[in-house]
Computed example of a mutant assay.
Amino acid sequence: MADPKPTPEAIRLSASVDAAAVRLAALRTEVQRAETAEALARLRLGEALVEALCARSVAEARLRASLFDRYRTAALALRRPDRRNRLRRLAEKALARFGGPGQALVRARAALGAGVALFDPDHYRASAPGSVGADPLAHYLVWGGDARLSPHPLFDSSFYADRNADALAQTGLTPLDHFLREGAADSRDPHPLFSLEWYVSQAPELAATGENPVLHYLRSGAARGLSPHPLFDPAWVREGGGDLVWYLTEGWRQGASPHPLFDPAWRRASGLDDGEAEPLSRFVLTARDTLESPGPLFNSKAYAKARGEAMDPAKDPLSDYLAGGAWVVLGPEGLHPALSMLDDPEAIRSGITPAEALARRLRAAT
């Protein structure tokens, strides 16, 4: 039996369907072309953005170096070299045994001046293994300095002495006295979390005055929200006013995060920290060799592999990333660094890296 002949209405309907299919296919092709053009435009924009951000990071590094050179010139003019030989040490010990008057002479000979702000009696007592007597400063000048006891949260005597052993041996000075007299002018950092060059770049007035950066931080910098280290972000630290002293004495024990990409709770859960010691300093000192990660949003080993020989051997992976490496490796979501930020204009304006921007978005969402 022959198929029934299609009606004129069916023929028209079929023709309409065929025409619609052709139009839909053409529309899909046009959409694909538009999407491809948009993707190419975004890629070109991203490449231009990366180039600009790379240039900005290089310019910022040069500005930091220039300001620090000017600071050193000013600070060198204020150096107060001194020597503390064996006879002087014996004399100090003899004076200290005479009690108050003798200890006053010891303090006077040290002539710490404004640098006395870097001596915290309570912190020193807590760091000393035994009684320090009624005059903890005299105790530090006579015994504690040689024993590498720390006089202040922002001055790590062991850190300073390990890195400046030759200079200390030549002068015989305590680590603190050496830092105040010569060390700051010679670019010798006082603590793993206090980078003199990083700090001076935020306080350009120091390039003219030559004031000790740590004393400046205690006097006004902390209140101004200045950062003493690339891995300490005062704006991120919610508690304690973003003060490094607070973080070192109380904050880390409360689990405070010092930087968007440093997650103390994650590190403890991962077995990287035991919760018994301040974690960020240890990370700064060891991560260059261990390649341990600071948190779930930054994989140090993967970053170091991607960065290769271009990674700064003097920096831990995270510090290298923040110093410019962010713009030459894939972002935290596996995207080209600029493509992961094209929809975050505030991040672009502020200059933060893609991983930091992601951390801030995640915090805002909680």
Rank of each mutant, 00 (worst) to 15 (best):
Q32V: 05
R219S: 15
E9P: 09
A75N: 00
L24V: 07
S187R: 13
V17T: 03
T7R: 13
E51R: 15
Y247R: 08
T249C: 10
P213D: 10
A310S: 02
A104V: 12
T209H: 08
N85Q: 05
K315S: 02
E60M: 14
E211M: 14
V284Y: 01
D177L: 01
L154R: 13
R148V: 07
A235Y: 03
S270N: 06
S195H: 11
R44D: 15
A222N: 08
T209V: 08
G242K: 06
G325T: 01
A26I: 05
V22Q: 08
S257V: 08
E333Y: 08
A91T: 00
A235Q: 05
V142E: 02
R188K: 12
S195Y: 07
P213R: 11
Q32R: 15
V328Q: 14
V22L: 12
L90Q: 00
P258E: 02
G251S: 11
P228Q: 11
D120T: 12
P313F: 02
W236P: 01
S293G: 04
S227A: 15
S66T: 12
A167V: 10
S150Y: 12
L27A: 15
L53N: 04
Q202Y: 03
M341C: 02
P294A: 06
R109G: 03
A77D: 08
A77W: 03
A314Y: 05
L330K: 03
V284K: 01
F98N: 13
A110F: 04
L248I: 11
R267M: 10
A222R: 10
P230I: 06
M311I: 03
D263K: 00
A20P: 01
P153C: 14
A304I: 07
L90C: 00
D273Y: 05
A26P: 09
R188S: 09
P175D: 07
P234A: 00
A355W: 04
G99W: 10
Q103W: 06
R42T: 09
G240Q: 13
L67S: 02
R181H: 10
L95P: 06
L45S: 06
A165C: 09
P8Q: 12
A59D: 14
E309D: 06
V22M: 07
A126N: 03
Y199M: 10
H191F: 05
G46Y: 00
L193K: 04
P129Y: 03
A55E: 15
S157T: 08
L358C: 01
A207F: 07
L206W: 02
I11L: 11
S195C: 15
F68Y: 15
R62F: 02
T171F: 11
E47V: 11
Q254F: 04
G271S: 04
P337F: 03
E205M: 11
S127M: 14
A59H: 14
R86Y: 04
